[in-house]
Write a protein that binds this DNA or RNA. Structure first.
Length: 481
RNA sequence: CGGGGCGUAGCGCAGUCCGGUUAGCGCGCGUCGUUCGGGACGACGAGGUCGGAGGUUCAAAUCCUCUCGCCCCGACCA
């Protein structure tokens, strides 16, 4: 690790982002352009994301399965919009075992086609529905411009795929899952999100509705942090997924798909990080508490390490993820900086003075310097106090991010106002009844897109900021990753 | 794919314009000693086909040609 080598967040956000990833050892570049190695510390964050999402999926009745990486090319061609949306970024396998393949295989960019091919074999009766399946997998999309965690040629995600008897059930499922994502993002990630529906232009290739949660990064750009699609009967018709209803009539199923990826790690970095590095929400932090011992001589070292061991035991028994940094080759000050860079939410300092009084010093990562320190916490009460502090940090990170976001969302009544807000980096919210072409024009001229029509809408209606016509809903415009 | 930048030790870089002993510096790494309440210090040490291939030259990290790759900014996208 280089010394104070991190680019300040305010001067160069993109440079800072890459520095955090490197210095906190979250990821490294792979040998192939656009690929990324997720290092153990970064992967541990992903594992906590997985654990928390998976629990929610199971609680809502879903089960996990696994489908093949290779998909016959013809499968993708079955749904017209789907292939149009994905063909520019497909990776194809044309040779296998030294022989030219009769039909190229697609390395899955998403699994609707292969999963629905299987669904068609599995679904026969209304009694087989709903079918609620999730898979944890890697997918490949040959993107032009890549960025660690946010956009790489290969990424990890989960993709839920469901089949239902009615439109209403599918719609309810799509909405339920975007709310599951919201609950996870805000509750565990401390990432405040705006949930809503995508415009027609931004709707997933092959879906009839796409729901999204949009988060504001530290540079005020938007990040689509998770999506849920109502696929209607598009794939059901393309793959002939039909069931016999209770009146003995054949019906096509109604479907959803929904996904959240390792991109969310990028969101955590960009929402919470500061000039000292990463700041992890306690509920997703691989290490929630680090203990840093302080000593001057051998006698002190022995005494301090005994107390360190005791505190570590108390915290571990309380179910807190704790690590003691007992390395002799680094000074306490070095360790403070190291673990701050890694984003560990709470630090316990234990030195000779603490041993004598049988207390410890607590420092919270979200409040820098001395202001974040509390001294004189009794050893025997440390677990309870740390648990409270972790909860406080979790809340504080969320509130901070929400205040930042809300301060940068502005209501606009005209295109000029929208332009000003977007140029200043903020999000613009305004009544919208424009056409696809109006939306494209805004994108070309301002580089901002409609992030969503939020579920949370104001009362009544208003004049469209672009056309002046009566608009039924407000849209949020922002530059996005 | 367009514009820009860069490939020299594990990492970050200097040296390249203007060719010249043995290719340097900082960090990191190893050993030993002193240190340790906000990124300690000393001594010694290990580590390089200068991205690759041709060419020019008495002599190439440096000049020429070709090539490969990466990063950043755009268009496209989770």
């Amino acid at each position: 690790m280089s010394e104070q080598a991190m680019t300040p967040r305010s001067t160069d956000f993109s440079g800072w982002y890459q520095d955090v990833i490197r210095e906190a050892e979250l990821a490294d570049y792979g040998p192939v352009r656009g690929t990324m190695v997720i290092r153990p510390y970064g992967y541990a964050i992903w594992e906590h994301i997985q654990r928390n999402l998976d629990r929610r999926f199971k609680e809502t009745g879903h089960v996990n399965a696994y489908f093949p990486l290779f998909i016959p090319y013809s499968f993708l061609q079955k749904e017209k919009e789907h292939i149009e949306g994905f063909s520019p970024e497909l990776a194809l396998v044309t040779v296998g075992g030294g022989k030219e393949l009769e039909e190229p295989l697609v390395v899955r960019p998403t699994s609707e086609t292969i999963i629905n091919y299987m669904f068609a074999r599995w679904v026969k009766s209304y009694r087989d529905l709903p079918l609620l399946i999730n898979q944890w997998a890697n997918v490949v999309r040959w993107e032009m411009r890549t960025r660690p965690f946010l956009r790489t040629l290969e990424f990890l995600w989960q993709e839920g795929h469901t089949a239902h008897a009615t439109y209403e059930e599918a719609e309810a499922e799509a909405r339920r899952m975007i709310e599951v994502y919201r609950d996870f993002a805000e509750g565990d990630g401390a990432v405040p999100v705006i949930v809503g529906r995508k415009s027609r232009l931004e709707t997933f290739a092959g879906a009839i509705h796409t729901y999204t949660m949009e988060a504001m990064m530290g540079d005020k750009r938007a990040l689509q942090a998770g999506t849920s699609h109502n696929l209607g009967q598009n794939f059901a018709k393309a793959f002939d997924i039909r069931y016999l209803d209770e009146h003995n009539e054949l019906q096509h199923v109604w479907q959803t798909s929904w996904g959240l990826s390792t991109r969310f790690v990028g969101a955590i970095i960009m929402v919470h990080g500061d000039d000292h590095g990463l700041r992890l929400p306690p509920r997703l932090a691989p290490v929630q508490v680090v203990i840093v011992p302080i000593w001057r001589n051998e006698a002190q070292r022995t005494a301090v390490l005994a107390t360190v061991g005791r505190v570590q035991q108390l915290l571990a028994e309380a179910g807190i993820r704790v690590e003691a940094d007992v390395r002799a080759q680094h000074t306490p000050g070095w360790k403070f900086n190291y673990w701050e860079l890694k984003g560990v939410p709470v630090r316990v300092e234990i030195g000779p003075r603490d041993v004598e009084s049988q207390t410890v010093v607590l420092a919270r990562r979200d409040v820098p310097g001395k202001a974040g320190k509390t001294t004189g916490i009794p050893v025997e009460g440390v677990a309870e106090r740390v648990r409270e502090l972790l909860a406080e940090v979790q809340t504080a990170l969320f509130e901070q991010a929400r205040a930042f976001r809300d301060a940068h969302i502005h209501d606009v009544r005209s295109y000029d106002e929208l332009r000003d807000v977007v140029a200043a980096g903020g999000w613009a919210r305004g009544w919208w009844a424009g056409s696809d072409d109006d939306e494209r024009r805004i994108k070309e001229e301002t580089r901002a897109t409609i992030r969503c029509f939020p579920f949370d809408q104001p009362e009544g209606d208003g004049p469209c900021l672009m056309t002046g016509q009566r608009a039924q809903q407000v849209a949020i415009f922002a530059k996005a990753y």
